[in-house]
Amino acid sequence: MKHLIDPMDLTVEEINDLLVLADDIILDKTKYRDVCKYKTLATCFFEPSTRTRLSFEAAMLELGGNVLGFSSADSSSAAKGESVTDTARTVACYSDIIAMRHPKEGAPFVATRGLTVPIINAGDGGHNHPTQTLTDLLTIHREKGHFDNLVVGLCGDLKFGRTVHSLIKALTRYKNIHFILISPEELRVPEYIIEDVLKKSNVTFEEARTMEEVMDKLDILYMTRVQKERFFNEADYIRLKDSYILDLEKLKKAKKDLTIMHPLPRVNEISVQVDDDPRAAYFRQALYGKYIRMALIMKMLGLK
């Protein structure tokens, strides 16, 4: 694995290897604390991020490595008009591996040109965010223990949410997954996901307008934020927003072993009362994000 740009760059076997390694890291972190000694991760973040950048940095530090980088385009030579390729090639002179976030779609792919160190796409606009997908897969693996025979509910903004699209693509490779796509009409999953991904993979799915009507069927509920600005008018937003807020009342109908996930940040789409429910996995998910990045950094650097 030279670079990681698209979550689908990884085969199921490669993903399994990463999950196994992440499991082992979780089991005994001390075993890995010097694995990346004298290695440096560069975090090139052309736009702000909390979780992704910090989890990359925490991952490298816990592996005993060093971290350098920048956290906005203003503090890099991009502000002087430098190309992404040139920035990446320069940063590669001072580091062993790069994690790049960029607001423009395809920027990390362009950065791979002539690059001598591996690069990880840490999010490019609304396009790809492979380490979020890996985080989601590790969460399902840890919480459920398997990927097959699951009913996966995806709720909220399914139109613009890149995490949802990537997760759908990743899960279609497993057996007997059934998706329930819960969203307002305005934020339905794009047609190409239905036609090119779900139907072509022969994956079963259904669409629902409220989570109440399907709650009892779900093994996983993946929540996303419904943003007010996505609606054409405020009246529609007010009419619909409560249908996409998860609270204890709605959870009454849910299975006892439901796993509630969210890529975070959350605004109000999950009531804080839900946080204490053992089914709420979203903060554990944020932690798994660090472990899967540790595994990924090791694999990409060819370390054991």
């Binding site: 190309s83 423009k104 395809g106 792919f109 362009v110």
Partner: peptide
């Protein structure tokens, strides 16, 4: 035509 595509800011691509 995607305004968010990297080609929108890097003319030489």
């Amino acid at each position: 035509k995607n305004p968010r595509c990297i080609t929108s800011i890097e003319q030489e691509l």
